[in-house]
Design a protein around this nucleic acid. Structure first.
Length: 760
DNA sequence: TATCCGACTTAGCAATTCCTAA
DNA sequence: TTAGGAATTGCTAAGTCGGATA
């Protein structure tokens, strides 16, 4: 098809392009009085159709600084270092033993001796550029298989149409997979049920079919007649039992497990010990596809050694397959970084056993990824200039390419490859369809689509007039629902174009670059002052700006609404106390109402019903507390062979509480509270209560804002870790507060190589 | 040129562990 | 001391992208 030429008719309302950095996001209809903000700030609304409640906003959750940590602070370290030569690379490695003395919370000195940093290979101090060869020598112990299926107790049976049925072990295992998930959303999803049931029936047929207690065949025909509740109850019971085990028992089990796993955890890469990531073969189960995945619920079959390809160095012992089995294949391919692989049966995709995140190979590729993003800094101005120009190109293809570039650069959209009918319908930039964008003149674009993992991307964005105009052209009839917006474009075309600017440049680099750049800009705004806790809050706010840019979300926890409700109750209780104090003030000095009307304008903040609820909650809570205390005290007295306190003592206290409650209810009804103390004291108390309400409301907002934003993904994959290390050093915030243990291991290279002067 | 496949990164949810407040 | 909620880790699904294949 020849490139479509854009006619002058299309150009009638051409306007000068605006810089991408001036693109603004606008808010959803539910809070349209909020300020319009720049690029990093965006809102996503609660989807009505989706079962998940997702929301993204921009405030910070205040994390309280731990005081016990401060007590632990004095640490005495003794470090012994032995230097030896690495046999393969002649690289100097250090074996460091760190002896630590820490003062615990109990005031006792604890001695720990950890062999941190054993055989540290500082690959980042070498210039190791070759990517095509991943290793010289590789030794490992293979993979760990999940345990064999253990049949359920004979008493635990699935019921069909009310009759308990005996299933062959293979079928019972599959039924059990479903039974264990009975109370999850998956098990309630019709597609999941249908796929599970088809595969279950197939296994049942293969393995001999279901029988009743007399050995007669039972035809399993309808899912709706299957009852897995006994199985579910059985698994619940097992879980409870496991939970109820003593700490010693749990520890013993863990120790045994660790012992079995130990050989698989590490391997020798070029003679150095490195950690293996997922050495466990995935156990069989039901495929938990995300979103509306057509295959969700299908049986993921047990992986046999015969399906597994082992990749290992030449001339080293090949790990033994389980007794009676053979490996599918043994390879010696040093151009790849996997130790084992197999094809899974759901999508026939390949699963790999790879190195752990803290390994040198993963570290190097991470390092290269961020260096590539930094390299983009040098080219981004040219690229932007070019696509701004091409937004007005006469060639349809170029215009589409430029528009897509704009969206990838400004909104941090993913490339968006084609997907098949046997996958969930999700899109990225190049695969956006007609129905995913709505245009509102003069230049507001509403994006509403499901992205990776079926996470909803819902934004109203103010784009440059030229981009708006282009999108309108790309949506022009005969285009209709279901058609691609960028019909001339796909990621490979786009990426090929990007290679012209810089080798290795692809759409995904823009996400890394813009995420790190945003973080860098946000961190630069933080003043170097305040406590560690305050600086942490600001760091997290910067992190959140990045997470929002990348649309990283998490499902709102099931208990979120409940815990918000509890906080709201507590806020109301403080507001009610504030009301009482103000009423007392008026009781002592009625003229204040006229003199300081502002002070009393919030007197009706709570309705009578709300105040009554507060008073009653207080009564309930106090009664419960006193009753519990009474019981506990008496138990103690009995244990000490003393006479317990008489019940009348408790009853007297409960009566006191009830009387106070009556008094409160009277106050609420009459709108009058008897003044006690002095006006000055009351004023001070009111002020204190005001600040408390403000703080609590702020914390609540933080909780709400954070409830659906996932900070971890950007910290782990998009923000150059050297930015975090730089922040740590410059602002004197311990790195332990910014990176978890796992991230510190993963980003060892950054921690050791960046300082406060490092620049992204 | 389109499609598929292989290799690897990115991602959210589930399970486990840790911490805090009562 | 313990329960419950937050933080962290583990698991594996779902992307990107380059190169092979049809």
């Amino acid at each position: 098809m020849p490139a479509r030429i854009i006619t002058s008719d299309d150009e009638d309302d051409l306007m000068p392009p605006s810089r991408p950095s001036t693109v603004k996001r606008v808010k959803d209809e539910d809070d349209d009085d909020a300020p319009v903000v720049k690029k990093v700030k965006k809102e996503s609304s609660t989807p009505k159709a989706s079962p998940k409640v997702k929301k993204a906003t921009t405030t910070t959750k205040v994390k309280k600084e731990s005081t016990t940590n401060a007590k632990k602070a004095p640490v005495k370290k003794t470090t012994t270092t032995t230097i030896k030569k690495d046999p393969v690379k002649q690289q100097t490695v250090k074996k460091t033993t760190i002896k630590k003395e820490t003062v615990g919370a109990d005031g006792k000195i604890k001695k720990e001796e950890t062999e941190e940093a054993e055989d540290v290979y500082k690959w980042w101090e070498n210039d190791n550029q070759d990517d095509s060869i991943k290793w010289e020598t590789l030794e490992h112990k293979g993979v760990m298989f999940p345990p064999e299926y253990e049949p359920l107790p004979k008493s635990v049976l699935m019921k069909y149409d009310g009759t308990p049925v005996v299933l062959p072990h293979a079928a019972e295992e599959v039924a059990g997979f479903f039974g264990a998930m009975l109370e999850t959303d998956h098990a309630k999803n019709p597609t999941f049920q249908k796929n599970f049931f088809n595969d279950f029936k197939a296994v049942l047929k293969e393995s001999g079919g279901a029988k009743d207690k007399d050995g007669n065949n039972v035809q399993i025909k309808a899912f709706s007649k299957c009852d897995f509740s006994d199985m579910y109850a059985h698994f619940e019971k097992m879980r409870e039992e496991k939970k109820a085990m003593s700490a010693a028992e749990k520890k013993a089990i863990k120790a045994e497990r660790d012992k079995i796993e130990e050989p698989f955890k590490v391997c020798l890469l070029n003679g150095r010990k490195e950690q293996v990531g997922n050495f466990r073969i995935e156990p069989p189960g039901l495929f938990r596809g995300r979103g509306a995945h057509p295959k969700t619920g299908k049986l993921k079959r047990r992986v046999m050694p015969e399906q597994i390809t082992i990749n290992i160095g030449k001339g080293v012992p090949v790990p033994e397959p389980p007794a009676g089995h053979k490996w599918g294949e043994v390879r010696h391919d040093n151009s790849v970084a996997w130790l084992a692989m197999w094809h899974e049966n759901i999508n026939n995709s390949i699963k790999y056993v790879l190195f752990a995140a803290n390994s040198s190979l993963k570290g190097m590729s991470d390092y290269k990824k961020f260096e590539k993003a930094r390299e983009l800094k040098k080219h981004v101005a040219t690229i932007r200039k070019d696509y701004e120009k091409e937004l007005k190109s006469e060639a349809m293809f170029e215009r589409q390419r430029a528009t897509a570039m704009y969206l990838i650069d400004v909104l941090a959209l993913r490339a968006g490859g084609e997907k098949g009918d046997d996958e969930a319908d999700t899109v990225g930039c190049c695969s956006l369809r007609y129905e995913h964008i709505t245009l509102s003149p003069p230049n507001i674009v509403e994006f509403d689509f499901l992205g990776k993992d079926s996470i909803r991307y819902h934004q109203e964005v103010e784009v440059s007039p030229q981009v708006f105009k282009n999108l309108r052209i790309f949506k022009k009839a005969p285009k209709k629902v279901g058609d691609d917006i960028f019909d001339r474009l796909d990621p490979s075309v786009l990426n090929k174009h990007l290679q012209n600017y810089m080798p290795g440049l692809t759409a995904k680099v823009f996400r890394t670059y813009n995420a790190s750049k945003t973080m860098d800009d946000q961190l630069a705004l933080i003043p170097n002052e305040g406590t560690v806790a305050e600086k942490l809050v600001k760091f997290n706010a910067a992190n959140r700006a990045v997470a929002i840019l990348c649309n990283h979300q998490k499902t709102v926890s099931k208990t979120h609404g409940e815990s918000v409700g509890k906080i709201e109750d507590r806020i109301n209780e403080v507001v009610w106390q504030k009301w009482r104090h103000k009423r007392m003030l008026l009781d002592l000095e009625p003229k204040l109402l006229k003199k300081e009307p502002k002070l009393f304008e919030d007197l009706d903040e709570l309705s009578k019903e709300e105040k009554t609820a507060c008073a009653n909650r207080l009564l309930e809570k106090d009664s419960e507390r006193w009753t519990k205390k009474f019981e506990r005290d008496n138990e103690k007295l009995v244990a000490e062979k003393q006479k317990p306190k008489p019940k009348s003592e408790l009853n007297a206290k409960l009566k006191d509480l009830a009387d106070t409650n009556k008094q409160y209810l009277k106050e609420i009804k009459s709108n009058k509270v008897e003044g006690k103390g002095t006006v000055e004291k009351l004023r001070a108390q009111v002020e204190k209560l005001e600040t408390r309400v403000t703080t609590m409301r702020m914390q609540l907002k933080d909780k709400e804002d954070n409830s659906s934003v996932a900070l971890g993904t950007s910290k782990m994959n998009y923000i150059d870790p050297r930015l975090t290390v730089k922040f740590s050093k410059k602002y004197d915030v311990p790195i332990e507060k910014l990176f978890t243990k796992t991230l510190r291991d993963k980003f060892q290279w950054a921690i050791q190589s960046a300082d406060e002067d490092w620049e992204f």
